[in-house]
Design a protein around this nucleic acid. Structure first.
Lengths: 245, 245
DNA sequence: TCATACTATTGATCTGAATCAATGCAATCC
DNA sequence: GGATTGCATTGATTCAGATCAATAGTATGA
């Protein structure tokens, strides 16, 4: 089992969460400043440098994480060291730490891929004391439903797609979420290493490399540096992701 | 693409849902009979014979299915005919039909494995008109969170376990949920065909057969008929599922 | 009870991705 | 700016599971 949980993120309680100034924050939208202020300690905030890790074991079952900015990796590690990256979370994404489980299952960690800020929110005190709590609950419920859909898409990908299709799907998804168009094409920064992409897609890092090279040779992507992908034609990549022969 | 969506389940509106007499029904628990009666049309009920299919496309995004009894299979089918069974749902389980999506993704179907009764619930009218709606919302939110955890476990299984481990994990899960102890061991009825188990685990039916035979030969299971599994020692199966060499 | 039609099992072979093993790059630190 | 170090890439080989092809069971209906 991985022992490199050295750099624990340092948690700084704050009430209300100073990170929830953004208009898109569901907590703020549901409760407003007044509601948030009524619940001291319900929201705390963490800043993490790239590579910092947080052991998600032992959080109360009403906890929700919200990524303010940066990128957070949610990973599951089994006792014998097998890893799976459940998701790469970006600005605005929510995540629910796993309820603790019996042995034989796996442990959950969160790791910052980039410098990342996140809020750790306790829902119970908020839903008890704040006005607008039902709106908040509805927002969270909707978010959780969307998370179920995402997970089901990922399951389909893992169960029924080839390595090539999986990587194409991953690049496409990340491009949509974090990329930006330039004159040369759609540009995407791959901040995580190949090994983590492999852990996300149920593959080995060597296979990621090989397929990247294929994509490069066939002109689907350009790869000036290992961490910079340029996609001249998103539609072409999409065709590969969805099973074009 | 599968065209055998011949036997559409026949939906019979009812208010309140006569199927929600059980104490475990979250709708009933949250609202009570009075609350349910206040929302005519919010809950309808379906009876399905084994093999009957329901196209889940086009349900409102506030819809929840609840299996009353029997077994329901939630499956995703891509345009080129690849299938994945996201889950086998049993009594008390909730399921959320996927929001409709752009082309290139997949369609969702529900199919009764056994004779099955389910409730189709519209949440919005209930949460508007009934007392106790926030309790209901909290119950649904909790259920959705649990569903996210389940999906993440399944993702780990698909991404990082061998075929043998996956099948052991599946048998174990189903045994816990639908099996029962006898003097010969834990007995489990496999109502679905091998092909559907394969679709759930991202494998081929032949591989399921081969591993079943291995398990049989090594004494992990007995298999009097293809649809009846007897597990003398759950712990032995569990060891295989969680990566014993 | 026997014929019919599926479904499961087994066998032979193939193949995509894993594994093992170098080699080539890029960022980081003196 | 040049070594150092950790990744990424490429190559050779292996192997788990898929695919193709029979054969054997099981359930259903006359």
């Amino acid at each position: 089992m991985d022992s490199a949980v050295s750099a624990q993120m340092n948690q700084t309680p704050a009430s209300p969460c100073s990170g929830c100034e953004e208009l898109t924050c569901p907590i703020r939208q549901a409760l407003g400043n007044a509601g948030l202020t009524a619940c001291p300690g319900a929201v705390s905030r963490i800043s993490a440098r790239a590579g910092e890790k947080l052991d998600a074991t032992g959080f109360a079952p009403d906890t929700v994480f919200r990524v303010v900015n940066g990128m957070l990796m949610q990973e599951h590690v089994s006792d014998d060291g097998r890893r799976h990256v459940a998701a790469f979370k970006t600005s605005g994404d929510l995540s629910w730490p796993l309820p603790s489980r019996e042995a034989g299952e796996f442990r959950e960690f969160y790791e910052a891929v980039n410098p990342t800020e996140l809020c750790i929110i306790s829902i119970d005190p908020i839903s008890r004391c704040a006005p607008g709590a039902d709106t908040l609950l509805k927002t969270l419920y909707t978010a959780a439903r969307i998370e179920v859909s995402r997970a089901q898409e990922q399951m389909f990908l893992l169960a029924r797609s080839s390595a090539t299709e999986r990587l194409a799907g991953f690049l496409l998804d990340l491009a949509k979420r974090t990329g930006h168009g330039t004159k040369r094409g759609f540009e995407l920064k791959l901040s995580m290493r190949r090994e983590r992409i492999a852990d996300h897609l149920g593959m080995q890092p060597e296979t990621i490399s090989r397929i990247m090279t294929q994509f490069k040779k066939s002109g689907i992507i350009r790869l000036p540096r290992p961490s910079l992908v340029i996609i001249p034609d998103l539609k072409a990549l999409s065709n590969i992701a969805f099973g074009a022969p």
